[in-house]
Computed example of a mutant assay.
Amino acid sequence: MIYNVQIKVMPLKDLLDPQGKAVMGGLHNLGMNGVQDVRIGKHITLQVDAESEAAARDIAEEASRKLLANQVMEFYEIEMIS
């Protein structure tokens, strides 16, 4: 069966996000001074052929851990979607 999986990869909260800081500076230059913080991450969608939802989640977990996220600098969240 085919399962759709969304993976959100974001920088760790304690680490500086240079991309986010650059975007925040641009927003402030545009007069949007109410923006207090910007964090830039990745949104990844996988279609996984697996025997069960749990097996699809395991595949997404392994892909995230081994390739999609740098766990030294990023965290990830996995969501099964319909």
Rank of each mutant, 00 (worst) to 15 (best):
I2H: 12
I2S: 13
Y3W: 08
N4F: 07
V5E: 04
I7L: 00
K8G: 00
K8R: 12
P11K: 06
K13Q: 14
K13L: 09
K13A: 05
D14F: 01
D17G: 02
D17A: 02
D17Q: 03
P18R: 07
Q19E: 09
Q19I: 00
Q19W: 03
K21H: 04
K21R: 11
A22V: 04
V23F: 00
V23I: 11
V23Q: 04
M24S: 01
G25I: 03
G25R: 13
G26W: 01
L27G: 01
N29Y: 02
G31I: 07
G31K: 05
M32V: 06
M32A: 06
M32N: 13
V35F: 10
Q36E: 15
D37R: 14
D37Q: 10
D37E: 11
G41V: 08
G41P: 14
G41Y: 05
G41H: 07
G41E: 05
K42N: 08
I44H: 09
T45C: 06
T45M: 00
T45Y: 11
T45H: 13
Q47G: 10
V48P: 08
D49H: 13
D49M: 03
A50T: 08
E51A: 15
E51R: 04
S52H: 04
S52C: 11
S52P: 09
S52L: 06
E53K: 15
E53N: 10
A55K: 14
A56S: 04
R57G: 01
R57H: 12
D58S: 13
I59M: 12
A60F: 05
E61V: 01
E62L: 14
E62C: 08
E62W: 07
S64T: 07
R65L: 12
L68R: 08
L68D: 04
Q71H: 12
Q71G: 10
Q71P: 05
V72Q: 10
M73K: 14
E74M: 04
F75I: 10
Y76M: 11
Y76G: 01
M80N: 08
M80T: 15
